[in-house]
């Protein structure tokens, strides 16, 4: 019960700023969700590495697993992202 409540609060927090700019953080996306990358708010060097791996503004990614860090499918490859990094990437969910 407590876990579910905590989970909901976390999700609500992550979604809150989304209503202001039409998106949410990648970390807030559930397993199976597809999303288009809007903005990278992480450190420039990390953003650059992600762009080369196919995670750039405008690209579409699929969340494979969101329970433990972030597991994504990007350009046909599987990418593991730290939770903090996933929170700094703003995306537009496109359904699952």
């Amino acid at each position: 019960m407590l876990k579910r409540l905590l989970g909901r609060t976390k999700k609500a927090e992550a979604l809150a700023p989304a209503r202001r700019c039409g998106g949410c953080t990648l970390a807030a996306c559930a397993t199976g969700c597809q999303a288009a990358v809007l903005l990278m708010e992480c450190d420039g060097e990390e953003a650059q590495r992600l762009r080369q791996l196919g995670l750039y503004e405008g690209a579409c990614v699929k969340v494979v697993d969101s329970r433990n860090g972030m597991l994504l499918e990007v350009k046909g490859a599987r990418l593991a992202l730290g939770a903090a990094l996933a929170r700094s990437i703003r995306v537009l969910p496109m359904g699952s």
């Binding site: 450190d43 990390e46 490859a77 599987r78």
Partner: peptide, 10 residues
């Protein structure tokens, strides 16, 4: 520490 960005190969 640099954030985790890692490809998980098949």
């Amino acid at each position: 520490a640099r954030p985790m960005i890692m490809e998980l190969p098949p």
